[in-house]
């Protein structure tokens, strides 16, 4: 290992539609690149051990736990964070569904839940309750007891989010 190899790496990501270039250490986790380098703090860190899903983002349209992805691995990809789901104060239909159907209490799991829901509905636009619970198995919520979340996902599906 020479100093040159461990030196900063240039990583270019398209984040929420905008190209961003970062010079970072290879060991930088994607979640830290998003939160600390790009100030996109909507993505949360819950467990930091790939169990809770709070850090879920989409990479090239599929959901990943960004606490377990090195930012250098994501070089050249398109990343969607919660900031890219709605637009400012305007909520996307999936967020509106969570708001209307008590899909959140403290809100800490919500960015990850919303992105996991986007992935779920992209794969299956009309999931039944079992498919919803299975599809969100990688996301833990300490508050809601999940039934509000299941209702929210059903409402989002009815609103045509996955179509």
């Amino acid at each position: 290992m020479s100093d040159q190899d461990t030196a900063l790496h240039r990583v270019t990501l398209t984040v929420n539609g905008t190209s961003r270039t970062l010079d970072i250490e290879p060991r930088t986790l994607l979640v830290h690149a998003l939160r600390n380098e790009l100030s996109l703090t909507g993505t949360k860190i819950g467990c930091d051990t790939s169990q809770c899903g709070a850090c879920t983002v989409l990479i090239d349209g599929r959901s990943f736990k960004s606490c377990t992805v090195l930012a250098v691995q994501a070089d050249g990809t398109s990343v969607t964070t919660i900031e890219g789901v709605g637009s400012g104060r305007e909520l996307a239909a999936v967020q509106e569904a969570f708001k209307q159907h008590h899909g959140l209490q403290c809100g800490y799991c919500t960015p990850g839940m919303v992105l996991a829901t986007v992935e779920l509905l992209n794969q299956n636009a009309n999931p039944d309750e079992a498919a919803i619970r299975h599809g969100l198995a990688g996301n833990v919520c300490r508050c809601t007891g999940y039934s509000g979340i299941v209702d929210s996902v059903k409402a989002a599906a009815a609103a045509g989010v996955g179509k």
């Binding site: 290992m1 190899d5 461990t6 290879p26 060991r27 986790l29 930091d48 051990t49």
Partner: peptide, 11 residues
Amino acid sequence: MIPAQFAYRRA
């Protein structure tokens, strides 16, 4: 938790 330093390159 952040891994210890390492060198990185793409094959």
